[in-house]
Design a protein around this nucleic acid. Structure first.
Lengths: 159, 159
DNA sequence: CTCTTAAATGCAAGTTTGTTTCGTCCAGGA
DNA sequence: TCCTGGACGAAACAAACTTGCATTTAAGAG
């Protein structure tokens, strides 16, 4: 449960900008970049982690390097949009490791999935499990990524 | 330029699994988890960073906490698919901070974008800049995320 | 205008973590 | 068998993180 309203000043934003690029940057260097001492930087980072501004610290793995070179987008349209069935779908997608990202959306689809697989065979098997075996998926549209032009979770920061 | 063929053994994969969840985990703890000494863990991490298996180390920022609560998907269809125009589009999308992710895809669209903005007004302005002012966008379809059900860059790792 | 208070800072000490060195242990090839 | 390359662990070393404390800053009350 994120604490949203928190007041982030320009120091916090400058720190976030650095950590979003490389969270292994030493606090000493961050301090030099934003004109604060290392302890001050550390206290601000800790506070942002505790309040949920920083949701996590992760290594980004190159999918192709671990044998999962295929990225696929899927628009999923459900038969019924009963809340209970929506939630069931959310739970199933969340629990599926190949589903890297899942969004519940407005518009001509109900869900958009980002899927990572080793090959099209694996995707075919996954569609069977996620879509055909479900009796609540009306249809789905597949887009295979030819180029991961820009990938990341970087959030644009105000001024 | 990622070096793909590299041979990752089960130690490497176990280390990656941990770092994908939390890259602040001390090497000592990682070592205990995978039955290796801290220096061994450190050498493997360094090697994977150098070979591109680990593409980066980043803090994940909660968009709502920094005033960017709206996530939007856009399917973009171009007028012309001349290579030169495709590349121009890739460059423009890459250079736009609000475009968090951009994929060049097969299927009924040419690009899929993941966009992060503060409000719909900002999105409207962005569409003007990216789509209407371009004379190579035939049409685009917008999906507004109501729920970021699952978000991340976690890659499923082989056994 | 001064005083008080709460919050944030910098410095310095202490602790943990990351890094290097070095000797040892396999495994493969001559 | 001998040699060589690669990876390992233990220990020493260096760097980074963390904490305690006195000081500064800013805002509000008197």
């Amino acid at each position: 449960m994120p604490a949203l309203p928190s007041s982030l000043d320009s120091f916090d934003l400058a720190i976030l900008a650095i950590l979003q690029r490389d969270n292994t940057t030493p606090q000493r260097l961050i301090g030099e970049a934003v004109n604060l001492s290392a302890p001050a930087v550390q206290r601000r980072i800790k506070r942002m982690e505790q309040t949920g501004v920083i949701a996590g610290n992760v290594a980004v793995v190159e999918p192709a390097a671990v044998g999962q070179p295929i990225t696929i987008f899927v628009e999923v349209e459900l038969e019924s949009e009963r809340a209970e069935l929506i939630d069931a779908a959310k739970r199933q997608f969340s629990a599926t490791p190949e589903v890297q990202q899942c969004y519940y959306v407005t518009g001509e689809a109900d869900f958009i999935l980002v899927i990572t697989v080793a090959d099209m065979g694996a995707y075919e098997a996954l569609t069977r499990k996620l879509f055909f075996d479900s009796n609540n998926v009306r249809k789905f549209r597949t887009f295979v990524a030819m180029d991961r032009v820009k990938v990341g979770l970087t959030v644009p920061l105000p001024v």
